[in-house]
Design a binder for these strands. Structure first.
Length: 192
DNA sequence: AGTTGGATGGTCT
DNA sequence: GACCATCCAACTG
């Protein structure tokens, strides 16, 4: 996950003020801020600060625990839909992709939304409401606290220092489901 | 194994 | 009209 903190954070979507797209970030905490990027992917955030203080946490990756097949199906549907929109003909073949490894089902912000079928329609959903389809739940107390590491945020090359290098990306150090970002490099440990 | 280019459309200067 | 909180395929070596 990555923290985006207020209008002063020049990597945050709220840096130019409130717009139709980022309005949810300006609202109460605990809601989903979902946006559309690069013409094909969605990204899920959790609003974290009180109303009027536009901050959120981007969910960059998820370790699948349950509903694995459901996630595989959603990923396949997402890919198929994109293929279908592009190719008008020759759709006969490529339906058979190789089976996605569990570790890669949601190992990126766009993939999280593809695996959970999250779209802009989920923007503003109350993630703390137990009745919500999309929601946060507290971990069982039996669960051991993970070791968390921090590093610079991914994909914000447009931002000036110190925002560019602030270690506001937090990740479970030994997770096999870490997202693979392009620029700076925490990519090394024997993931895979 | 590491790097590069292309797809694709909403959003904002 | 440029940019983008991305991903994957196709390269290179």
């Amino acid at each position: 996950m990555e923290a985006y903190v207020g209008q002063e954070d020049l990597a945050c979507h709220a840096r130019y003020g409130r717009t139709d797209r980022n309005a949810t970030m300006f609202g109460p905490p605990g809601r989903a801020y979902v946006y559309f990027v690069y013409g094909m992917y969605h990204c899920l955030n959790v609003v974290t600060e009180p109303e009027g203080c536009p901050s959120a946490v981007l969910i960059r990756a998820v370790e699948p625990i349950a509903g694995i097949e459901r996630m595989r199906l959603a990923r396949a549907e997402h890919a198929a839909r994109r293929r279908a929109e592009r190719d008008v003909g020759a759709t006969a073949n490529s339906g058979v992709g190789r089976v996605l490894p569990e570790d890669r089902l949601a190992s990126g912000p766009g993939l999280v939304c593809a695996a959970f079928s999250i779209t802009r329609r989920d923007d503003g959903v109350d993630l703390c409401d137990p009745a919500s389809d999309l929601r946060l739940e507290t971990a069982p107390s039996s669960e051991e606290a993970p070791v968390v590491s921090a590093g610079p945020r991914v994909g914000i090359g447009y931002a000036p220092e110190p925002w560019l290098s602030n270690a506001w990306r937090f990740f479970v150090a030994d997770s096999a489901s870490l997202s693979t970002g392009r620029s700076r490099g925490s990519r090394s440990g024997g993931v895979r």
